[in-house]
C-alpha cells in the first residue's frame, strides 16, 4: 500500500476504521491487526470502488466485512469473550455515572456493544455514526424498515444492559 494512498484515501477516514475495529477486538494488539487488515483490504479493493456511493460508505463496508470475517476466523481458534475478570468493576456499571469522564463512558458503551451479535454491532456502529437508515440498510444488505426495527431493539438491549448494572 503506497503511503500516498494511505495518507490521501485512508487516513482522513481512519476514525471510521478505528471505531469499527474497536467494537470487534479485545486488545490493543488485536485492534492493530484488524486495523491493518482493513487498510490492506481497502487498498486491494480500491479498483472495485464505483462512485455510486461515497468513499466513506465504501470504507464502512470494507471495515465491517474485514472485521466480521477476521472475527469468524479468529473464533475458530479462540473464544472471544467480553467478560471481565471477577473482582473487577464492570465498565457498564459506570455508564450511569455523570462523574466518570467521557472516555470511560465510551469504554463502557463498547463493552456493552460487544455483547451484541456481530451484525447488531455493525448496525449500531453505523447508527451511532449518524448514518441514515437507508445507507445502513445498503451496507448491511437489508431493508430500511428492518434496520429501524433492529435499531430500536438494539437500543433497548443496550439500555437494559446498562440499567442492569444500576
Amino acid at each position: 500500500m503506497g503511503i500516498d494512498f494511505y495518507k490521501g484515501y485512508i487516513l482522513p477516514y481512519a476514525g471510521i476504521i478505528i471505531k469499527i475495529c474497536r467494537a470487534y477486538t479485545n486488545s490493543q494488539e488485536e485492534f492493530e491487526d484488524y486495523y491493518q487488515e482493513v487498510c490492506l483490504q481497502i487498498w486491494r479493493s480500491k479498483d472495485q470502488f464505483q462512485e455510486q456511493s461515497e468513499w466513506s460508505t465504501w470504507i464502512y463496508r470494507i471495515s465491517l466485512n474485514v472485521c466480521l470475517t477476521t472475527l469468524r476466523k479468529d473464533k475458530k481458534t479462540k473464544r472471544v469473550t467480553v467478560e471481565m475478570p471477577s473482582g473487577m468493576p464492570e465498565p457498564t456499571a459506570r455508564i450511569i455515572s455523570s462523574e466518570i469522564d467521557s472516555e470511560q463512558l465510551l469504554d463502557a458503551l463498547y463493552t456493552a456493544i460487544k455483547q451484541l451479535s456481530e451484525i447488531d454491532r455493525a448496525i449500531i456502529l453505523l447508527y451511532l455514526d449518524e448514518k441514515p437508515y437507508k445507507e445502513i440498510a445498503r451496507i448491511i444488505g437489508t431493508s430500511p424498515n428492518n434496520i429501524g426495527v433492529r435499531i430500536t431493539r438494539i437500543k433497548e438491549r443496550l439500555t437494559k444492559i446498562v440499567s442492569e448494572k444500576e
Binding site: 481512519a14 476504521i17 485492534f31 486495523y35 467521557s102 472516555e103 465510551l106 458503551l109 451511532l128
Partner: peptide
C-alpha cells in the same frame, strides 16, 4: 451522547 462525547477526545481517533 456517550458516543458523541466519547469521540470528542481526538486522541481516541489516532490511527495506529
Amino acid at each position: 451522547t456517550i458516543w458523541r462525547e466519547g469521540f470528542l477526545d481526538e486522541k481516541l481517533l489516532v490511527a495506529p
